[in-house]
Computed example of a mutant assay.
Amino acid sequence: MENLTSVSLAITLFASTNLDDLFVLVGFFSDPRYRLRQVAIGQYLGLSALVLASLAGSLLSLVVAPVWFGLLGLLPIVLGTRRLLALRSDDGDEAASEPASLGKVLAVAGVTIANGGDNIGIYTPVFATSAAPRLVLVLAVFAVMVALWLGFAHWLVHHPALGAPIRRIGRVATPFVLIGIGAMVLVEAGTLSWVTG
């Protein structure tokens, strides 16, 4: 019964904090330059970093002010702006400026981390109050949930009926989604108000 409660908690925790990640994953899968492997590795790296930061969150919050974490919001803004500029240019020379495979993995990981600022605040108290067996079970459920999120986003983008419109909309909407996520991170962390005085 306790394991079932832990699994339910983990599913609820993951789904409630990563719903917006589905839109980000659809955006990455809509971009033909990103391969499934690159997005999957980046997503797992990003979530692993969030989990590690959550485990160390109580210590980090004593040393690092949240406004500094908000600077991570600049990464999705930069990526979104670059994509927006690439959409506007009709020279078809995207391949020349295409980032390397590692760059794509790191881009996905960076957006996952930047988008996960709220995750740290929510995960930290749950992890801090969980016994080791429960914590291992929660992390295992998280790993499965990432795979489900990746699978669902990939399925949506490649669905026979839904895929083409989603790819078309995703290609145009993704830059705005990334810029919006970055702006939200900057505002919610208090970084924007701190910078503007």
Rank of each mutant, 00 (worst) to 15 (best):
A100I: 08
I113R: 07
A109M: 09
A96H: 13
A100M: 09
I113S: 08
P125Y: 08
G117L: 14
I113E: 07
I122N: 00
T124S: 10
A107C: 00
E98A: 15
G117K: 02
P99S: 11
A100H: 14
G110I: 01
E94N: 14
D118G: 13
G116D: 10
N119V: 11
G103M: 06
A114P: 01
L106G: 07
N115A: 15
N115P: 02
N119S: 15
E94M: 08
N115M: 04
I122T: 15
L102S: 11
D118Y: 09
V111F: 08
F127P: 13
V108N: 04
V111A: 11
V111H: 09
V105L: 04
L106P: 10
S97E: 14
G121D: 07
L106H: 06
L106A: 11
V126Y: 07
A95P: 00
T124I: 02
E94F: 08
G103W: 06
G116W: 05
I120A: 04
A100Q: 14
D118L: 06
L102W: 15
S101T: 14
A100V: 13
G121S: 07
L106D: 07
G121N: 05
I120N: 01
G103A: 08
S97Q: 14
N115V: 01
A96D: 13
A100K: 14
G103H: 03
A100P: 10
V111R: 09
A107S: 15
F127D: 12
V111L: 07
N119F: 06
G110V: 03
F127M: 13
G103Y: 02
Y123I: 10
G117Y: 03
G103D: 04
G103C: 03
I122R: 05
A100C: 11
G103S: 05
S101M: 09
P125I: 05
G121C: 06
V105G: 00
A95I: 12
T124D: 00
I120L: 11
N115I: 02
T112C: 12
F127L: 15
N119Q: 10
A107D: 12
E94P: 00
L102E: 01
G121H: 07
E98S: 15
T124M: 07
G103E: 04
E98T: 10
V126W: 07
A100T: 15
Y123H: 06
I113L: 15
A96L: 14
L102A: 15
N119H: 08
I120W: 04
A114V: 03
N119P: 04
P125R: 09
I113H: 04
G110H: 01
A107F: 04
L102P: 05
A95R: 14
G116Q: 04
P125L: 08
S101L: 05
Y123K: 06
I122L: 13
F127I: 10
A96N: 11
A96Q: 13
P125D: 05
T124V: 02
N115R: 03
E98F: 00
V126P: 04
G103R: 09
K104G: 06
P99M: 11
K104S: 04
A96Y: 10
I120Y: 03
T112M: 13
T112W: 04
K104V: 00
V108L: 02
Y123A: 12
D118I: 06
V105T: 11
A96K: 14
K104F: 05
A114M: 01
A109P: 07
N119A: 15
G117A: 06
G117R: 03
P99N: 01
N115G: 12
A107N: 05
S97L: 12
V108F: 01
G116N: 08
D118N: 13
G103K: 07
P125S: 04
P99T: 12
